[in-house]
Amino acid sequence: MIEGIGVFDVLVVSTAMFFIGIYGFLVRKNLITILMSVELVLNAVNINFVVFNKYLYPDMLQGYMFSLFAIGIAAAEAAVAIAIILNVFRRMKGIDVEHVDSMKY
């Protein structure tokens, strides 16, 4: 445990990361940046897992393990997302999310 850093401080960081991610997801037009924003959201959640495990149940490992799983899943998801973005690029000649609207009414 790092001295002087309370659970509240860590939660402030993770909440900030979470909302930065949401903001980026909603505002940026580039699909890759949106993917990065999604990663930020995921990692904010991971931090919460770790920090709650550390402070609430120091003798247990579930939180750590779960965050490891989430990282693994996120890696796979990133690979899939990049593949999708590549295909979008080929098809739409660009990765601006506003142009990817062929599923509208």
């Binding site: 997801f25 909603l26 505002v27 990817v100 609207d101 509208k104 009414y105």
Partner: peptide
């Protein structure tokens, strides 16, 4: 109401959030 299904991903995101 069909305008709500715009195909714009980020609009859906707004609605979700």
């Amino acid at each position: 109401i069909k305008g709500t299904q715009s195909g714009q991903l980020q609009q859906y995101g707004y609605a979700m959030v």
